[in-house]
């Protein structure tokens, strides 16, 4: 900090003799900004009209602070919920809940027949994924898809939301039926990863439809009609599912850039 401003210079500044374009005014102003003592001395030096004007301005600022809009409250929770939630998923969550509940009732009533829950588990998250990342169900898709965070990061957030709905549901049902948890968990994760990988190339909704339809037609329907457990949902096929899930997840990470463009939203 420089030495305090001399009384003569301060008076010249206060009365306007030291103009704004005077080179001497610069160090005075620089000092005044940082020095409360000199600010107080300046207050004594300024002529009456200026003092009145400053007092008036002060009153106006205080009135504005009293009558103006109140400051916005902190909204951490609200913000957090917006960043994670995708509201379009809600109707789908209800449908999945009903489907899993129906499958559970069938399994409990006809315990001897092949498990409907295990046939449903792999495709349970696909509907949610299709809804969470689609042009049709996300009204703001065009605004969102051009932003920095759009892409695999945002898609994974929405995937987590979908899995948080699906997995506890399957866990509860599986526990009631006494099924090996890996039998529904691994296929479920493998299909999720497959949908994310394929979705980058042809669009999430299309990928979900293709995978879900394929599984239903090729595996689930024949199984339920012929009433025998296919080798795909037997404990001996679990290592295969694990390898598939990990490999597909890694490939998805490698192909993360695919989700940056509008094809992914088809």
């Amino acid at each position: 900090m420089t030495a305090h401003i001399s009384a003569a210079v301060l008076r010249a500044y206060a009365t306007g003799e030291l103009g704004a374009d005077d080179a001497m005014a610069w160090p005075v102003e620089a000092h005044l900004e940082a020095c409360p003592q000199c600010q107080e001395r300046l207050a004594d030096e300024v002529p009456g009209p200026v003092r009145d004007m400053v007092a008036e301005a002060r009153l106006a600022v205080l009135a504005q602070a009293r009558n103006g809009p109140p400051p916005v409250r902190r909204r951490r929770l609200r913000r957090l919920s917006h960043r994670w939630a995708s509201w379009s998923v809600l109707p789908w969550a209800l449908v999945t809940l009903l489907a899993v509940a129906a499958a559970f009732l069938l399994d409990e009533t006809f315990a001897a027949r092949s498990s409907v829950v295990l046939m449903l588990a792999p495709v349970a998250p696909l509907g949610g994924l299709a809804v969470a990342w689609s042009r049709r169900s996300d009204p703001a898709w065009e605004t969102v898809s051009g932003t920095a965070r759009a892409g695999l990061e945002l898609l994974l957030r929405r995937t987590v939301v979908v899995l948080v709905v699906v997995l506890p549901l399957l866990a509860a049902v599986g526990w009631r039926l006494g099924t090996n948890p890996a039998l529904w968990l691994l296929p479920c994760l493998a299909f999720t990863a497959a949908a994310l990988l394929l979705g980058g190339l042809i669009g999430m909704s299309r990928a979900a439809a293709l995978l879900g339809g394929g599984w239903m037609l090729a595996v689930a329907l024949p199984t339920l009609i012929a009433d025998r457990q296919p080798v795909l949902v037997q404990p001996q096929s679990l290592p295969g599912w694990a390898v598939a899930a990990v490999a597909l997840a890694l490939l998805t990470l490698l192909r993360a850039g695919d989700h940056r463009h509008h094809t992914s939203w088809k």
Partner: peptide, 20 residues
């Protein structure tokens, strides 16, 4: 397109977050 339940502030904040 927009999310009808968001307030103006919610929406602009969400987009600010998306734009990093």
């Amino acid at each position: 397109g927009f999310y009808p339940k968001f307030t103006v502030r919610d929406y602009v904040e969400y987009m600010a977050w998306l734009r990093e």
